[in-house]
């Protein structure tokens, strides 16, 4: 399959004495859509943040197109991040800025697009996620949860990134809105020819979005395979997770520490 677009090799991260990532190995190939599942608090978001450089991993390597990007800082990191899009778990919309400024933020600040062009582009992109131009003038606080997710999605894809991360894109949405978001993700990713890495614990969403699925548990990817094989993984952890059973090898820690 050639060089992976993105690969994580033995990525480890601990906070104090709490080990969150304990040697994560994961490969995502160009144009592929990979979904990582895992229980709450298993470090799925931390994994994405390690790739983006928001959190420095303690050890391990992160490669983009075969180039080690683990320790890039400053301007080099800034250049690199222009190739990424990220949909944050909580949306992370800038609440001091109007929706259209949120959507075109990357275009204006990183690509130095003029205000007028950026605004026109923002309206285009909003239309692609099913929002009218009038939404552009609202503030994020005035939007419903589903609309916020769409705006966050619009912001993540606005700069035509090569690789896009979606962190729990459907969490907290009703099933219909969740499906709308799934469709948008599939459509937009295909449209851009981008590579996608999605975090979710919504099985319906995973089946829809993924080419390949990986399961993160106890700081490692314990199983990975094509989406079609998920139902016959033979892995008791995966089985328990996809059937949503409380009984099984995975025991939920109640406390975070």
């Amino acid at each position: 399959m050639g060089t992976p677009k993105l690969s994580l090799e033995g990525v480890r991260k601990r906070f104090g004495s709490k080990v969150v990532l304990d040697g994560v190995d994961l490969e995502v190939y160009p144009g592929e859509s990979v979904v990582v599942m895992g229980g709450s608090g298993t470090g799925k978001s931390v994994m994405l943040k390690c790739v983006l450089g928001l959190i420095q991993p303690d050890s391990g390597r992160i490669l983009l197109d075969g180039r080690d990007i683990t320790h890039l800082r400053g301007r080099e990191r800034e250049q690199l991040l222009r190739r990424f899009g990220m949909l944050f778990q909580g949306g992370a919309l800038f609440d001091s800025l109007r929706v259209w400024r949120n959507v075109s933020f990357g275009l204006m600040s990183a690509q130095r697009m003029s205000k007028r062009d950026a605004r026109a582009r923002a309206v285009d992109i909003l239309a692609k996620v099913g929002l009218g131009p009038d939404v552009g003038d609202l503030r994020p606080a005035e939007l419903s949860g589903g609309m916020q997710k769409r705006v966050a999605l619009a912001r993540a894809i606005a700069t035509n990134p090569e690789i896009i991360f979606f962190d729990e894109p459907t969490a907290g949405l009703d099933p219909i809105m969740a499906d709308v978001i799934n469709k948008l993700i599939i459509e937009r990713v295909r449209d851009l020819g981008a590579t996608a890495l999605t975090i979710t614990h919504d099985m319906a969403s995973a089946r829809k979005i993924a080419d390949r699925i990986g399961m993160l548990h106890a700081g490692k990817i314990i199983w990975a395979g094509p989406v079609a094989e998920i139902d016959r993984s033979g892995n008791p952890y995966v089985e328990q997770f996809i059937h949503g059973r409380a009984e099984g090898p995975i025991t939920m820690a109640v406390r975070r520490q």
């Binding site: 983006l52 991040l81 992370a92 919309l93 609440d95 933020f105 912001r155």
Partner: peptide
Amino acid sequence: MRVTEQIDALTTLAT
């Protein structure tokens, strides 16, 4: 902005 990850979002938007 920090606890709602807006500062992280800024960074990922190359700012």
